[in-house]
Amino acid sequence: MAAGGDHGSPDSYRSPLASRYASPEMCFVFSDRYKFRTWRQLWLWLAEAEQTLGLPITDEQIQEMKSNLENIDFKMAAEEEKRLRHDVMAHVHTFGHCCPKAAGIIHLGATSCYVGDNTDLIILRNALDLLLPKLARVISRLADFAKERASLPTLGFTHFQPAQLTTVGKRCCLWIQDLCMDLQNLKRVRDDLRFRGVKGTTGTQASFLQLFEGDDHKVEQLDKMVTEKAGFKRAFIITGQTYTRKVDIEVLSVLASLGASVHKICTDIRLLANLKEMEEPFEKQQIGSSAMPYKRNPMRSERCCSLARHLMTLVMDPLQTASVQWFERTLDDSANRRICLAEAFLTADTILNTLQNISEGLVVYPKVIERRIRQELPFMATENIIMAMVKAGGSRQDCHEKIRVLSQQAASVVKQEGGDNDLIERIQVDAYFSPIHSQLDHLLDPSSFTGRASQQVQRFLEEEVYPLLKPYESVMKVKAELCL
């Protein structure tokens, strides 16, 4: 049975990233139509530049190519590739079939990587351009969430054990800070992308030097003109047959890092959902379990974690691919890159769409948070109580021993009897502590235990987050809708 299948058929496997999760716009960027249309555009740009620099290419040939950029006979191309065992030459023939007058000058002087690699770089750039505003929107939604809850005390956790208090907004800023680093890295790697350009079979530009009869300047002009037509500021000066596969490492490393950030955020949300302090959106008709109707599973956060793990592992592909590119190139890269580049971007696209949807509907339960604080705060307040007693004339050592005994009794009630923490009640009825009984409410005010959390939130948002989001103001209103 021949390899390949009808990918629109229910009898043929289709990647869930495309069929179930990723956005239509990201799927289109990695589609065959987008790819092969870009090949034709690159052939047109090459012909236009070659004509401008004096090669015998007519206006009629150029116009014929322009008129057929979208006229792609995919069936013919597939048949040609089956016959020739070469995808680029299959599309040269297919393009030439609908451009008979231009057929002889299509791909003039070029090698397969002229269309293959340059198209990949265009796709990487455009895919990054799709991700950047999506990530900015996630940051914006979380920034709104953090600002609104900047002063809401909550129990902090280290080692997932109760620690000092923080605020809900401050905790959210930990998430935002990681995503801001990801946004900066995505922008950097996007701006650092260079075009492969017009380089020939081993990167020496020998074929173009021959076409222009040894004119170095025209060869350099050709490279520059096509690079500018493709919208790049610069091209690699040095290439082998391909652009260095280190570029793929750079791009997928940034995406993998984004995956790590999203995994951490969504894990926190899942843990908070278990504590009943916070939940992701839950639709009115949504079913959490087929057997347990009360369940409210954090399905979206779980999906993000599941896909983020996949995204983090994909960076190993370009690392290994770059390491086995012998001399000017081997074909070890080809099949692998067809999979890992598309999957990385479709996965990143999915987790950003999902995280935006989550961040637009996060639900906080202040009463649950308050109750958990009441359970733990008495123990945390013991040092403040000791200091207040010393100020009232008591002995630190005597007070410490009193607190120690009462704390152990209260802990026994919590752990052995399943009761509430009654340390404060014990202190309130103990005559030894009568000098500070009137101060206990103040000493137990949760806001006095959150330090500068709310001020940190305000400063972080104003100095770091809002300036970073400013270039994306025009796209901030787009909502994230999930079908599944």
Rank of each mutant, 00 (worst) to 15 (best):
T52P: 04
A308I: 06
Q51I: 07
I351C: 10
D216G: 14
K479P: 15
R37N: 13
R141I: 15
A342S: 13
I105C: 11
Y472H: 11
S31L: 01
E328R: 03
Y466E: 14
G200T: 06
G418F: 05
Q409R: 10
A260E: 07
F195I: 09
L135H: 08
T158V: 01
L132T: 12
V457K: 03
E425I: 01
Q409I: 12
R329M: 01
D87T: 01
S407A: 09
A102S: 11
K147T: 11
N421P: 13
N353Q: 12
T350L: 11
T158L: 01
H217P: 12
G169P: 02
L130R: 07
K224F: 10
Q41M: 13
S207M: 04
D268M: 05
V189C: 15
C180S: 11
L258A: 11
V251F: 09
K233E: 09
G259C: 10
S301H: 01
S301R: 02
G109Y: 02
S434P: 06
D333T: 00
R337A: 04
S306F: 05
D73V: 05
M65A: 00
D59R: 09
C172N: 04
D398C: 11
R374G: 08
E50Y: 02
H263Q: 07
Q51T: 05
L271T: 07
D441M: 07
R338Q: 06
Y472G: 09
L69W: 12
I339V: 13
A90M: 00
Q221G: 07
P318L: 01
I287F: 02
R374Y: 07
R404Q: 08
L272N: 01
K391R: 15
L44V: 13
P318R: 01
E60R: 10
T354D: 05
L314E: 05
P16C: 12
S412M: 14
L55D: 02
L46G: 02
E481Y: 12
T244I: 00
P24R: 12
K233R: 13
T58R: 13
R372W: 03
K233I: 11
H86P: 01
L152F: 07
W175G: 02
G214V: 05
T354Y: 06
D422K: 08
K35Q: 14
L331H: 01
V405Q: 15
F157S: 08
L135A: 08
Q286C: 03
V465D: 02
E473G: 11
W45P: 01
A143F: 07
M76P: 05
R245D: 01
V368Q: 05
S359T: 10
I249V: 09
D11C: 12
V368E: 06
S23Q: 10
E401A: 14
P318G: 07
R194I: 03
C113I: 05
A411N: 11
